[in-house]
Simulated assay, not measured.
Amino acid sequence: MKVYATQWLAIVEACLLVALGVQLINASDLLVGGTAGLTLIALQFLPDMTFGQVFFLVNLPFYLIALRYLGLGFTMRTFGAVSLLSVFSDLISQHVSLELAHPLIASVLGGLLIGLGLTFLIRAQASLGGITILAVFLERRLSINAARTTLATDMSILMFGFVFFDTLTVVYSIAAFIAVGSVMGRYRKPAFIPPEQAASKVKLPLQQRTAKA
Rank of each mutant, 00 (worst) to 15 (best):
8 W>E: 05
14 A>S: 10
14 A>D: 02
18 V>I: 15
21 G>F: 00
34 G>S: 03
44 Q>T: 11
46 L>E: 01
46 L>V: 09
47 P>A: 09
48 D>Y: 08
56 F>W: 12
57 L>E: 01
64 L>K: 04
65 I>D: 07
65 I>Y: 09
66 A>Y: 01
66 A>I: 06
66 A>T: 03
71 G>E: 07
75 T>G: 10
80 G>A: 13
83 S>Q: 10
84 L>F: 08
88 F>E: 03
94 Q>N: 12
97 S>A: 13
99 E>L: 13
100 L>N: 05
100 L>W: 04
101 A>R: 11
102 H>M: 07
107 S>Y: 01
110 G>K: 07
116 L>R: 06
119 T>E: 00
121 L>M: 06
123 R>V: 00
123 R>Q: 12
125 Q>T: 09
127 S>A: 15
131 I>Y: 01
131 I>M: 15
131 I>T: 14
133 I>H: 04
135 A>P: 04
136 V>R: 11
138 L>V: 07
140 R>D: 03
140 R>P: 02
141 R>I: 10
142 L>Q: 11
143 S>W: 08
143 S>I: 08
146 A>D: 06
146 A>C: 13
148 R>M: 14
152 A>H: 00
153 T>M: 15
153 T>S: 15
154 D>G: 10
157 I>L: 13
158 L>S: 08
161 G>F: 09
162 F>H: 06
166 D>K: 13
167 T>I: 14
167 T>H: 11
168 L>I: 10
172 Y>C: 14
174 I>R: 02
175 A>H: 01
178 I>D: 00
181 G>Y: 00
190 P>H: 07
193 I>L: 15
197 Q>A: 14
200 S>V: 06
202 V>I: 13
205 P>F: 09
206 L>N: 08
208 Q>F: 10
212 K>C: 11
